[in-house]
């Protein structure tokens, strides 16, 4: 039976998903072995059944990220944090550096939407619609929130790195990555 894979991008930029597409013609080979469940690649918004592998890009910056991640953890046997944001927080985690403030989240929002000279915001309001998920007090990595089975660093990890990882995982073998494949930039 084909293995099932789910993917999602949380507080990420979809760069890691683009990198997955960089496996090029090997996509066909992958599709011989797996079926994609919930994923932006097929636009499935919900899990249809339990999956073997979950690939998660991006860290957690709001409640929806946490909720989605918990759902992935519940529905996937093996959960993989893909890319710098998922592993260490990446660019979004820079807001955690606002730590010597009594009200870091407010300071972050005010800088982003009101105070910075680069901001064009005629309404002079911080977005606050009921449909917007609440932000977390700071950005969390995936491993801060749930147990993660594997972490692949890189911004993004290259297509080859992702391919080698999936290939080994599907074959039930240990992953062997060349020195230059395991990197943090």
């Amino acid at each position: 039976m084909k293995k099932r894979i789910a993917t999602v991008s949380l507080a990420g930029c979809f760069g890691c998903h683009m990198s997955l597409l960089d496996i090029d013609e090997r996509l066909l080979e992958l599709l011989q072995q797996v079926e994609f469940d919930r994923s932006p690649l097929n636009d499935l918004k919900r899990f249809t059944r339990r999956c073997d592998i979950g690939l998660v890009e991006g860290g957690c910056c709001n409640e929806e990220n946490v909720h989605t991640l918990q759902e992935f953890r519940r529905n996937c046997d093996v959960l993989i944090a893909v890319g710098q944001c998922a592993v260490m927080g990446g660019l979004p985690v820079m807001r955690n550096a606002i730590m010597h403030s009594d009200d870091p989240l407010r300071e972050c929002l005010e800088t982003a939407y009101l105070d910075s000279d680069k901001v064009y915001n005629p309404s002079n309001q911080i977005p606050n619609d009921a449909a917007l998920p609440l932000l977390l007090d700071k950005v969390y990595t995936l491993a801060d929130v749930v147990k993660v089975d594997y972490q692949i660093p890189g911004c993004p990890p290259s297509g080859d790195t992702l391919w080698n990882t999936l290939e080994a995982l599907l074959a039930g073998k240990p992953v062997e990555l060349a020195y230059e494949q395991l990197r943090y930039d």
Binding site: D103, L134, L136, Y140, D144
Partner: peptide, 14 residues
């Protein structure tokens, strides 16, 4: 889930 992660506390400020 990680027992150390407290979603309620993380949302309080927001």
């Amino acid at each position: 889930v990680q027992a150390s992660f407290d979603i309620q506390a993380a949302l309080e400020e927001s």
